[in-house]
């Protein structure tokens, strides 16, 4: 008992100290482990924040990209609709001309219509014709051939509001154009392909036979039927300056040829781009028709004068 009294308290204090030390050591160990874990958590959190930040940035880019794709989509839609728009615009013009001609033919409208047509071009002289047409604000129809070197002239014709129509690619009347229906049709299609390749445009589906439809003789009906089945119409003319048939043609006679023969409500005047005489007579011819209440339009296949 005296031993316990003497050393018991010391022993208990010692045990207590050892226990406290053990707890402190264990605590430090846990503290270290927790610190290590927290460091990991901090690092993972940083990465997570970095991912979130990157995702936000990507989200912003996606929003901008989506907008940009939307703009591109609308541009593509617009470009892809242009062919349809052209077809619609052409059809609207056809309908408007048809309705106007109906009024004129019924005697309800005092206006007359002149379809001025220029064949066999383009030539360098076509520029001179275009200058006159431009100064008089006249829209004409150019029955062109395939002439790859004259691209600038085709461009000017198109740019200045005139229409291109089909006069076959080669115009080879005496060398096989009228040998067969297929040789004629191939030449027509070749010109359309040429215009389409150069300008991405179809012609106006109006064809004029080189030399006139009666040059085709016995093939005429067959060619016309083929043209119709392909969606084309053909046109001859009601009056002409006779610039291709009369080698001694004077300016006065070109003027009288054109103006005296043309006395219908709707007329189709033929001249050729190569003719210096027709070029010289053209301002007087235009003035004469304007005085007689003729309005100039380019040809469209819906017109009443087609297939004549």
């Amino acid at each position: 008992m005296s031993f316990f009294k003497r050393y018991g308290l010391l022993l208990v204090s010692g045990l207590l100290l050892v226990g406290i030390l053990a707890m402190v050591v264990l605590s430090l160990k846990w503290k270290n482990n927790i610190k290590h874990l927290n460091a990991k958590v901090s690092s993972v959190s940083k990465k997570q924040n970095s991912y979130i930040h990157q995702k936000d940035s990507i989200d912003n880019i996606i929003v901008a990209l989506t907008d940009s794709v939307g703009v591109l989509d609308s541009m593509i839609d617009y470009y892809e609709s242009l062919d349809f728009q052209l077809e619609t615009a052409r059809s609207q013009y056809g309908k408007a001309i048809y309705a106007l001609e109906e009024e004129i033919l019924a005697g309800d409208n005092p206006t007359k219509i002149m379809y001025l047509t220029l064949d066999d071009g383009p030539y360098d002289r076509t520029h001179d014709f275009l200058d006159i047409l431009d100064s008089c604000s006249i829209d004409a129809t150019f029955f062109v051939l395939g002439k790859p070197k004259m691209k600038a002239v085709y461009e000017r014709i198109l740019r200045e509001g005139h229409l291109l129509a089909n006069h076959t690619y080669s115009h080879r009347i005496r060398t096989g154009l009228y040998r067969s229906t297929s040789s004629f049709i191939e030449d027509v299609e070749k010109l359309d392909r040429f215009i389409c390749n150069e300008f991405g445009l179809p012609t106006n589906n109006v064809v004029r036979f080189p030399g006139g439809s009666y040059q085709a003789f016995s093939l005429r009906r067959s060619i016309i039927d083929s043209l119709h089945s392909m969606g084309y119409r053909y046109i001859d003319w009601t009056c002409s300056t006779h610039d291709s048939s009369d080698s001694c043609l004077t300016v006065d006679s070109a003027f009288f040829n054109a103006t005296l023969d043309c006395d219908h409500d709707i007329d189709v005047l033929l001249m050729h781009d190569f003719s210096k005489t027709s070029l010289a007579a053209l301002p007087r011819i235009i003035a004469n028709f304007q005085e007689r209440n003729y309005m100039f339009f380019p040809l469209v296949k819906e017109s009443h004068v087609m297939d004549r």
Partner: peptide
């Protein structure tokens, strides 16, 4: 880059203008 695009737009404008001119001349 397709030059045809330019001509297509030109051609549409041209037909629109011509159609309007023809309509303006109609009396009914």
């Amino acid at each position: 880059a397709d030059t045809g695009l330019y001509w297509l737009i030109q051609e549409i404008d041209k037909y629109d203008r011509l159609a309007q001119r023809a309509k303006d001349l109609q009396l009914q």
